[in-house]
Simulated assay, not measured.
Amino acid sequence: MSDEIEIPESHPRYQSLLTRHRIEAGVEKGITSKQGLIAQGRGEAFDYLIGERTTESAEQAERVAAAHLLLADSPVLSVNGNVAALVPGEIVELAKATGAEIEVNLFNRTEERMEAIAEHLREHGAEEVKGLTADGRIPGLDHERAKVDADGIGNADVVLVPLEDGDRAEALGEMDKTELVIDLNPMSRSAQVASVPIVDNVIRAVPNMTDHARDLAAEPNSTLEGIIEEFDPEAALSAAEDAIRSGDME
């Protein structure tokens, strides 16, 4: 991002300070809501408890998520204000690696924010950004996140839902969509209802998924299906909770 502040990578809180600044810059740019600041702080607390690292179970979940995206007929990466502020270029790279569409979906939705986020993603390499048409709806939701593009999330078979989004994740499950959820809180509703819960920081999870997608791109469908079949979401959540409760940050 062009508005990055200078933080030496040797600083022990480098990644934390960098992500905080990106969220602040997102608010100033009009792509992140003020509520996003609170959400960032909540996630950062959980990240600290797992040692600000990608655990073995999270790495496995990211590989499984990549396999799902590669096998999908109509995969979509859902983007909110925090995701747009934190990993815009990384989301674009994941979309390119998996053939997924990118769609903006917001709780605090205004046309100005939608346009600002779409333009921000285009500045980071996105060729097409869905979400602005909003000619479809997710049944069972009474707020703005119900609005989706009919040929985007509405038609998707696999949806990446980064960051906490419990009610929408639950509603997407009711539509028989495969949900890949990135959430640092393994006890949140979004993680609990996910087909693939990824308990990791989005700034690590998205690039990791891209790396796995590139590694798996030439594999036959049978190999990808085997990776998915072996995954146990309950075990992944249990491992994440154990990591948090143990306080082992080594």
Rank of each mutant, 00 (worst) to 15 (best):
242 D>I: 08
49 L>E: 04
28 E>L: 07
46 F>M: 11
73 D>Y: 06
63 R>T: 12
78 S>N: 12
101 E>S: 15
212 H>G: 02
165 D>T: 13
4 E>H: 12
180 L>K: 00
96 K>G: 11
88 P>W: 00
61 A>T: 06
222 S>Y: 06
161 V>T: 12
3 D>Q: 10
127 E>K: 15
162 P>A: 10
23 I>Y: 01
169 A>M: 01
140 G>C: 02
211 D>S: 07
161 V>D: 08
237 L>E: 10
131 G>N: 03
131 G>Q: 00
156 A>L: 09
50 I>W: 02
155 N>V: 03
14 Y>D: 01
129 V>R: 05
110 T>P: 12
19 T>W: 07
174 E>H: 06
22 R>L: 13
44 E>L: 11
39 A>C: 07
249 M>T: 15
97 A>N: 08
75 P>W: 08
147 K>E: 04
62 E>S: 14
230 E>L: 08
77 L>V: 09
187 M>T: 13
135 D>M: 02
65 A>E: 00
141 L>G: 05
209 M>I: 04
235 A>G: 13
156 A>S: 12
8 P>D: 13
200 D>C: 09
21 H>W: 14
115 E>W: 02
17 L>N: 03
201 N>V: 01
100 A>E: 05
211 D>G: 03
74 S>I: 13
88 P>L: 00
200 D>R: 13
193 V>W: 00
121 L>H: 04
171 A>F: 00
167 D>Y: 08
122 R>E: 12
123 E>Y: 02
74 S>T: 15
